[in-house]
Design a protein around this nucleic acid. Structure first.
Lengths: 231, 231
DNA sequence: CCCTGCATCTCGACC
DNA sequence: GGTCGAGGTGCAGGG
């Protein structure tokens, strides 16, 4: 990795056109040739960048550019598209290269998939007598997170979210519309299950006759551990 | 901005829990206290980070940590949530601080806005005889991208996307529902226009009687250039 | 301030 | 390789 602090102007053309006026910024060149242009604020997103696969070429400025104070022109060309990033370097304040090696990578825990797995195992959270039909029940517009039957044998479609928001209710509504066309399943009831359900999402769900269930992730995980220990 | 190259392990807890094993990485500390942990690959997204507003405290390692080779413990606490990032620094390879100042910011020329402008100018792409009523036609739930009339004088509502996906069809459906309540406009036909339309979005659109139009951005832009040259 | 919609989204899973 | 859904999404614009 090479890290350069430099005053520069930057131009990107590709999906859109974007321009950064002259200012001092951090330029990061990664081992795969990708380039990131960071300012001293904002979030983790760079002001501008080029994703791999791409090629960085450092060239001389034209006469005009040199006259304007440019000392180096970096051209970063994407390998597969015509996306191009041009960095005109005016003054280099610092320039360091270091060998980092391959990163062992991030270990994550706590996603929607885990919630789905736990709820499938603990399906009676939806109510006594509920039985799992299957996870990822396929429909024409995509899989329903969980399909189950309640104590009376009626079909129940469950949409699971970490955070229950309006678009999740919309999604479940589409599934219900389709599932209810299937005479073998209809009538299908909807359950919107999430760790937290936003007020507006709850209002919309209730308005559409969809039940809301708040999932306690820690409790479900704890129960999972207990069950694991039994076997 | 402070840039540190160091071997470190990182733990994040908040929306999820994540862990990075010991390896050499780049640590970027921005003026607002936000911290980015970058490896020598991937895209512009850091392996781990803390967004502002947040506070960085550099502390001493515990005895156990010191025994394991930790020389500094960085704790980055988010100001509003309980998100926390802990960086255990083992060896500092490089450490530079530099004053960047406020960045003048990015100047963009976007896509969807441009597509909308081009389609409004070239409204007959929708079919011969179409005429523009107006762009950003206001409704109670937000503006419709384009309202037009076809060769027979019937109203047409157009939703424009760069990539046509299901939520875009949902959006247009809501507009159509509202517009069709207006006796001066009804019946209103829907057109879903995008540079590319995902298969599932197309299925849903067709199912709801909404026409799909694929827009050729380059051709439309080219035509725009030609027209510009004529005047 | 929250909500909505877009993004050079990125990223992973699955077909 | 594509397709699709999720994201610690970030971000801007509008009420």
């Amino acid at each position: 990795m090479r890290v350069v602090i430099a005053s520069c102007s930057v131009d990107y053309s590709g999906r859109l056109d974007a321009h950064l006026p002259l200012a001092t910024r951090l330029l990061m060149v990664k081992a795969d040739g990708s380039v990131l242009v960071h300012s001293d604020g904002g979030s983790y997103k760079p002001l501008n960048w080029m994703s791999p696969p791409c090629r960085l070429e450092v060239g001389e400025p034209s006469e005009d550019e040199a006259g304007a104070g440019v000392v180096e022109v970096w051209t970063v060309q994407h390998a597969k598209t015509d996306d191009k990033l041009v960095v005109r370097v005016h003054e280099i304040v610092a320039d360091h290269s270091v060998e980092l090696g391959v990163d062992p990578g991030l270990v994550k825990d706590g996603v929607e998939a885990h919630l789905q797995k736990l709820l499938a195992e603990q399906i009676e959270i939806l109510g006594p007598g509920h039985q799992l039909v299957r996870r990822e029940y396929p429909t024409a517009i995509g899989p329903v997170d969980i399909l189950a039957r309640d104590a009376d044998g009626a079909t129940v479609a469950v949409e699971i979210k970490r955070r229950g928001e309006i678009d999740g209710v919309e999604q479940l509504t589409r599934y219900l519309e389709l599932l209810n066309r299937d005479p073998l399943l209809a009538p299908v009831r909807g359950i919107f299950a999430a760790q937290e359900i936003r007020p507006q999402a709850r209002v919309l769900a209730v308005d559409r006759g969809i039940d809301c269930v708040v999932l306690d992730y820690d409790a479900m995980r704890g129960l999972d551990d207990v069950e694991s220990r039994l076997f």
